[in-house]
Amino acid sequence: MNATTVDARGSLIAAIFLGVGLMAAVDEIIFHQVLAWHHFFDRSTLAVSLLSDGLLHAAELLMLAAGFRLFLTLSRRGALSRMHAWAGLCFGAGGFQLFDGLVNHKLLRLHQVRYVDQLWPYDLAWNGFGALLLVIAYLIWQRARRETIDQ
């Protein structure tokens, strides 16, 4: 691959890592720390809950570091596809959000969005936002694919 060839797949993958890391950071900072609505694992002691948040934070930082490394490598080579990167960012963020809402909240019951009597509005907003990001990602990706084919 020469320096002028765009790497659509690599751009998508790099930005998926960034999207997952970014959404995990938003979840960790806003919902775990600022609002204190939940921890990653709420079914034990506070010490275990805080440890689980720390492990989530470490994983989030690894995803961000890997994504930035891949992104910078593509950028330096002049091989970055901006549209594929935007699609990847939304795929990663939406995928994380929906996985967290469906698997962590409902299937594994590691925690809930918030511990209230009427949980469904929070679940709807949480999962709806993840699904919306995935729809946006798909639309951007389709446009990026068309533009890549036209070049």
Score class of each variant (00 low, 15 high):
residue 42 D to V: 05
residue 68 F to G: 00
residue 65 A to I: 14
residue 98 L to D: 01
residue 149 I to G: 00
residue 140 I to P: 01
residue 32 H to T: 03
residue 64 L to V: 06
residue 93 A to R: 08
residue 47 A to L: 11
residue 88 G to K: 12
residue 142 Q to D: 14
residue 62 L to R: 11
residue 76 R to N: 14
residue 22 L to W: 13
residue 34 V to M: 04
residue 51 L to S: 08
residue 124 L to G: 05
residue 70 L to V: 00
residue 112 Q to W: 08
residue 105 H to S: 05
residue 74 L to M: 08
residue 142 Q to E: 15
residue 60 E to S: 12
residue 8 A to Y: 14
residue 65 A to S: 09
residue 55 L to D: 06
residue 20 V to E: 01
residue 111 H to L: 06
residue 46 L to K: 13
residue 138 Y to P: 00
residue 135 V to I: 14
residue 55 L to S: 07
residue 135 V to M: 03
residue 132 L to N: 00
residue 52 S to M: 06
residue 103 V to C: 04
residue 13 I to L: 12
residue 122 Y to F: 14
residue 104 N to M: 15
residue 43 R to F: 14
residue 45 T to I: 01
residue 117 D to W: 11
residue 19 G to F: 04
residue 99 F to L: 02
residue 31 F to Q: 05
residue 127 N to M: 15
residue 75 S to D: 10
residue 45 T to H: 06
residue 98 L to G: 00
residue 122 Y to T: 04
residue 109 R to A: 13
residue 128 G to F: 07
residue 85 A to N: 11
residue 5 T to M: 12
residue 44 S to T: 05
residue 141 W to A: 11
residue 80 L to V: 09
residue 110 L to E: 07
residue 82 R to E: 11
residue 110 L to W: 13
residue 99 F to M: 01
residue 2 N to G: 11
residue 30 I to V: 14
residue 23 M to P: 00
residue 57 H to N: 12
residue 56 L to A: 02
residue 137 A to L: 13
residue 18 L to T: 05
residue 67 G to F: 07
residue 147 E to G: 14
residue 53 D to H: 04
residue 103 V to Y: 06
residue 27 D to H: 05
residue 148 T to Q: 15
residue 63 M to E: 04
residue 39 H to I: 00
residue 134 L to P: 02
residue 110 L to F: 12
residue 75 S to R: 15
residue 117 D to H: 10
residue 86 W to E: 05
residue 105 H to V: 03
residue 117 D to I: 05
residue 147 E to T: 12
residue 7 D to E: 06
residue 104 N to G: 10
residue 132 L to S: 03
residue 142 Q to M: 14
residue 90 C to L: 13
residue 54 G to D: 05
residue 32 H to F: 08
residue 7 D to Y: 08
residue 88 G to R: 12
residue 23 M to Y: 09
residue 1 M to K: 08
residue 79 A to F: 09
residue 147 E to K: 15
residue 82 R to H: 12
residue 50 L to I: 09
residue 99 F to E: 01
residue 127 N to D: 10
residue 38 H to K: 03
residue 30 I to P: 01
residue 93 A to L: 09
